[in-house]
Design a binder for these strands. Structure first.
Lengths: 145, 145
DNA sequence: TATTGTTATACTCTATAACTATA
DNA sequence: TATAGTTATAGAGTATAACAATA
């Protein structure tokens, strides 16, 4: 009797896994370069882009980026020094400081977002059905805990 | 007369682009955690994994990782202090130092590689044709200059 | 002279722990 | 007492510039 086990060494799967690693490295690097073109570090760009979606208390920024809250102080300090972000008081709780992008900060965030063409270009060559299939595949990858 | 231009704001494409960003963030973080479980930083894990494929001179490590050669000195120092990597002389050129994994380093590199199940799992749910399509798509993304 | 690897320096990111001001 | 944000500290990664050994 033959027992079917998952073949972890399926060559095609391994090739895809390696390609995913390569895409991640490429994307990450392109993101750093795009940030640098805007005079930002990667971490600063990530925080600014996050706040451009929605202003957030310091602690919640840390939760989203999965790092310690103490790190956010310095990153927001540097964004604030460049007048891209402001610390605003929270009406309900005087301990809380809400970080929000300035108008200039919002502009930089938009420009940064628009400059991330890397991932967009290859998608142009796909049919709608292919993009749908890719979307579902990626959703599975993000959703898997 | 209507001119057809690429629609950069196609909602499906934007969704896929955002998903790619999410996958990259997820993968990157999982890699850091896998490295940490082996007592390594992300950079150390990347260098060790690279050397496990093939020993390389210091300068070539920097080229592969797209960083300055001076950074590699410290990373290899720390890997060498833990006896995961050795600096070996190059027969032809006495200026060159070839970094090569020790036996223990090779073991750690294999263990690290095996622990990167994150990307592999969701692929199991795909048909062979889907995986082929995904492979071609990823190849396009990596290959695009 | 040019190249390889290193050192020295400065900046940023990161986690940990202790502190402050509020709650 | 608990929580939000900060400060202090130490380790690591990064780029730049200058250096020693070798080509």
């Amino acid at each position: 009797m033959t027992v079917t086990r998952p073949r972890r060494t399926d060559p095609l799967t391994l090739e895809v896994v390696e390609l995913i690693g390569a895409v991640v490295a490429r994307y990450y690097q392109e993101y750093e370069e795009a940030a640098a073109r805007h005079g930002l570090t990667g971490a600063q760009a990530r925080v600014l882009s996050l706040l451009a979606l929605e202003p957030l208390p310091m602690r919640q920024i840390a939760q989203r980026l999965k790092c310690e809250p103490s790190n956010i102080t310095g990153i927001v300090d540097r964004l604030e020094a460049r007048q891209l972000v402001e610390r605003q008081p929270s009406p309900g709780d005087r301990r809380v400081k809400v970080a929000a992008p300035t108008e200039e900060g919002a502009r930089v965030a938009r420009s940064l977002r628009d400059s991330l063409d890397f991932a967009r270009e290859p998608l142009a060559g796909l049919s709608r059905d292919e993009r749908l299939a890719l979307r579902d595949m990626l959703k599975t990858m993000v959703g898997a805990e």
